[in-house]
Amino acid sequence: MIAETESVKGENKLKFGLFLGCNIPFNRPDVEQAMRKIFPALGVEIDDLKGQSCCPTWGTMPSIDIVAWCAVAARNLCLGEEKGIDLMTACNSCYGSLNEARHKMLTNPEIHKSVNEILAKIGKKYEGKSKCRHVAWVLYKDVGLEKIKESIKYTLDDITIAVQPGCHFLWPSNVYPDKEEDPFNPKVLRELCEALGAEAPYYSKLVDCCGMGALRSTDPEKSFTLVKEKLECIKDELDADMIVTTCSSCLIQLDDAQERLRKEGKLNFSIPVLHYVQLLALCMGFDPGQVAGISVTPRDEIINRIIKG
């Protein structure tokens, strides 16, 4: 078990460093904009974490060397630690990489020492205090479902959502600051969606992999097999109105691969995909063009349904 540090709550105010990663600011900046809108409105202060970099993602430093992985992660974590705040992210890969690196440093003094020797060259030191929180957990635990319910302008009546928490929201549960009671039957995202008035039932492939990331870059065919099975399950078992995820990679995969499968004649339906922060931003009444303006699979219909009631 690793030491837990309390999130900083100066003057009853929640404050986090907004860790962006790569996919969100460059590929899906509407997710970034959604976070910049919802958190201040919910009383959560955001620090820009100026100078942040890639987490580092799995195909880079983690594939080269453990100390190198931890050193890049530690520089990012330092940016929060220097200000006495935790980081928060809407990308599961960042959540996984940063927390796994932190876990390695806190459980292996040799790694921690080597990392700090490298950090000393840029005048930094990582104490192990700051960690990275997931935005969904911040919304669930720190903001709370009641406050979310109070903050929304539109409710999702008669809307069925298929949830996709994504791998690094769940496993390995021992490295994360927040844990589901049963990581193979996750409830947090379902409850977050239900707080908006939607139905978010269990389906048999709820925890299955979307096939993104390394799998897709190594073998797109195999990746599309996985995502197709998942989408068909969502259609057959739930006939969902939309898919809602807490991971930027799942968002891109489920949205983008769907269109490719349709073009190849392998899929004959379309289900819009949103990140949870986007859905919340829409329900709170923010401009759809800014908070949910980028997608491959069309979203207009569902957005209109949400806004017009």
């Binding site: 962006l20 600011p25 460059f26 509407d30 970034e32 904009q33 974490l49 100078g51």
Partner: peptide
Amino acid sequence: AVYMTGREARKKVGLPEKPPS
């Protein structure tokens, strides 16, 4: 690691061209 030079998407959603990274 994932980097794009095109910044139309950021501008479209009302964000500054460069993230604070």
